[in-house]
Design a protein around this nucleic acid. Structure first.
Length: 454
RNA sequence: CGGGGCGUAGCGCAGCCCGGUAGCGCACCUGCUUUGGGAGCAGGAUGCCGGCGGUUCAAAUCCGCCCGCCCCGACCA
């Protein structure tokens, strides 16, 4: 694109491709949801300025909403972490499903919805009094639970010190004892590309103690980041960097000093909504689409620029947009099935109609069924003809399992009145149609179903 | 790389704990009936019980080793 785009007249530009991608997954999982090979639609927008880029982004979000709505999906658009792809902000399209692989937070009171790792947390810890720092013997107490039980101190008075290697450099992260660290937040706070928990050898080297007794007091060789709730806080219980010892009564700013403060904790169910303060609920979702506002991250580094009206060189503003095709289909099935099988939403159905001659031995049924099948094709409907020599029940059950939105049943019973029966897979509702014009009527109905529902 | 599970008839499984010569459903074969929601009845065939070794009068069953597959976690869209 850097070579293709010259002038502001070439912008905005929006390109997409649909192709097979490969990721070297350590372990493929969730059936078709996470394999090493998958099909993805990805698209990229190129704009002259921020306003244009934002408009492209907004239009793409709206297009994605419509696509997923037509796929018959119940989904949410959530704020997400841009992750390795980078960029200034991003949204994920999450299909709500209990089998989903990602936790998301939703607020029942307002519109807030976000990837669980994205939700900001502002902790309000109970007031704690000072006192002086003291080293106490805590034999064998390594975990927060053990230390809390041993000292008889509530867990929110303790402080977790977690040692990480950020791009190879040691970092100590401090969070209140009753909360989990959010590694994504820590990674972002450090601006690190790679973050791994320190291995036991490194922990022992840094804390000069066995694993489980690390703390910030007297810790050298590691940058210390702490949750803002710990700033200046007194009465802390901390690892003493000595096997079987903890400090009590420690105070940030007096006994040790954090190098920086940042929101590091993982939001959990019941935490206040960052927008309206009501408690958040946790739900699970399947990520089917992801949009990123990239800004100039890639265009700048790849030298993608254009000449504006004044002939001055400007950097192109980019966005990037992806849909996981296979998992979208999987998610659609997840949300559209019953005990008998798949219920394809019409726009996704590989075939919209299964034409079933009820008794293959009955020549009139067979002939009328075939005629209807051809007529449907003439209507532009994708139809299948089940001309197998099977009992009617078998064909019905198979049609249900495969999920054809409609069955068109042709048998002696209906033919006596010159009619065929249409049955909806979703509602089970049936309707007798005169053979004459049955294909046209059904075609009409399918075209209506296929259009974007409200 | 860590944790767990499973290998028995074509397919899905029970039997294993408590050792006694292998069973259920579906599919299959034969006959009759049935034919608009996975047909019914009667009769029939089917097994190196993952492999190797050990214990025992006797091993699908107990013990050891090996092989294969699956699930969970670390990773990730």
């Amino acid at each position: 694109m850097a070579r293709e785009v010259r002038s502001y007249r070439d912008l905005p530009l929006n390109l997409y491709q649909i192709q097979t991608k490969f990721r070297d997954e350590i372990r493929p999982r969730f059936g078709v949801m996470r394999g090493r090979e998958f099909t993805m639609k990805d698209g990229y927008s190129f704009d002259r300025d921020e306003a244009g880029a934002e408009e492209s982004y907004r239009a793409m979000v709206e297009a994605y909403r419509r696509i997923f709505r037509r796929c018959g999906l119940q989904f949410g658009v959530v704020e997400a972490d841009p992750g390795a792809i980078g960029g200034s902000f991003s949204h994920e399209f999450m299909v709500m499903a209990d089998t989903g692989e990602e936790a998301i937070h939703v607020c029942g009171a307002c519109e807030y919805a976000a990837n669980a790792e994205k939700t900001p947390v502002r902790l309000a810890l109970p007031a704690a009094s000072g006192g002086k720092i003291e080293k106490v013997h805590t034999p064998g107490a390594r975990t927060i639970g053990e230390v809390s039980a041993f000292l008889g101190v509530p867990v929110d008075r303790l402080t977790k010190t977690l040692l990480y290697l950020a791009d190879g450099k040691p970092v100590a992260a401090l969070v209140p004892g009753h909360r989990e660290l959010n590694e994504t937040k820590l990674k972002n706070a450090l601006g690190a590309a790679e973050l791994v928990m320190a291995d036991p050898e490194t922990v022992q080297r840094l804390s000069r103690a066995e694993v489980g007794f690390a703390g910030p007091v007297g810790l050298s060789g590691a940058r210390v980041l702490a949750d803002p709730s710990l700033q200046g806080r007194a009465g802390l219980v901390l690892g003493a960097n000595e096997t079987d010892y903890h400090y009590v009564g420690a105070q940030e700013g007096r006994d040790f000093r954090a190098d920086a403060f940042a929101d590091l904790t993982l939001a959990q169910e019941g935490d206040p909504c960052p927008r309206c303060g009501k408690p958040l609920a946790v739900r699970r979702g399947i990520e089917v689409g992801h949009v990123f506002k990239l800004g100039t991250k890639y265009s700048a580094s790849l030298g993608a620029s254009y000449l504006d009206e004044k002939g001055e060189s400007q950097t192109i503003i980019m966005g990037c947009y992806g849909i996981g095709i296979g998992r979208t289909v999987a998610a659609a099935i997840e949300q559209n099935h019953d005990a008998d099988g798949i219920i394809w939403p019409v726009p996704l159905a590989p075939y919209q109609v299964d034409v079933i001659p009820v008794n293959a031995a009955d020549a009139p049924s067979r002939e009328k069924a075939e005629a209807l099948y051809r007529a449907l094709e003439g209507e532009g409907v994708e139809a299948a003809l089940d001309d197998r020599d099977e009992r009617a029940g078998v064909k019905f059950k198979d049609a249900d399992l495969i999920g054809f939105p409609y069955k068109l049943v042709v048998g002696p019973r209906g033919l006596k009145e010159g009619k065929a029966e249409v049955k909806s897979r979703r509602t089970g509702e049936t309707q007798m149609l005169p053979l004459e014009g049955a294909a046209a009527a059904l075609g009409e109905r399918i075209r209506k179903d296929a259009g974007a529902p409200s």
